[in-house]
């Protein structure tokens, strides 16, 4: 590990290691400051991309809001993210789901991933989360 990675790792909040994957439907609880008041806004959508860039790592959440597609990019390690909740696990064979932008209606739905005992062991999010290794253990999404 070079100095750059060491320093970035030191700055990363440990509790914010990834617990979601591309294709998952997530609820992002995002803190918004209005004047001197702070409130939490919930943004729900499908994770269509995760960009690994050390501490600048981001993920893109897409949702359809009043018939218009909205994509929002969140920095994973931002202190403004209060919580990320996974509401549905999607089954996908791609790391970037940009093809969803072309689709409308029912075809935007992804198959749900079954995480029962019979499914493939090493790809379930629970397994990776329990290893608690943070960034280094996760597969690089190219």
């Amino acid at each position: 590990m070079n100095t750059m990675q060491t320093i970035e790792k030191e700055m990363m909040p440990v509790e914010k290691t990834r617990n979601f994957y591309v294709g998952d439907t997530v609820k992002v609880h995002y803190k918004i400051v209005e004047g001197n008041r702070e409130r939490v806004q919930v943004y729900e959508g499908i994770v269509i991309a995760i960009n690994n860039k050390g501490i600048s790592k981001t993920f893109t959440v897409r949702k359809i809001s009043f018939d218009i597609g909205v994509e929002r990019v969140f920095p994973v390690f931002s202190p403004r993210i209060a919580k990320i909740e996974v509401t549905r696990k999607g089954k996908t064979r791609r790391a970037k789901l940009y093809f969803l932008r072309e689709r409308t209606g029912k075809s935007t739905k992804l198959k749900e991933k079954r995480t029962t005992a019979g499914s493939s062991a090493n790809s379930t999010p629970e397994n990776n989360a329990s290893s608690a290794e943070g960034n280094s253990s996760q597969p690089q999404s190219e």
Partner: peptide, 21 residues
Amino acid sequence: KIGMSEYFCEDGSIVPVTICE
């Protein structure tokens, strides 16, 4: 000079930083 990165302030704002040894 080691390289550039980002720093998250407590209020959530992001500062571009250069990591220097």
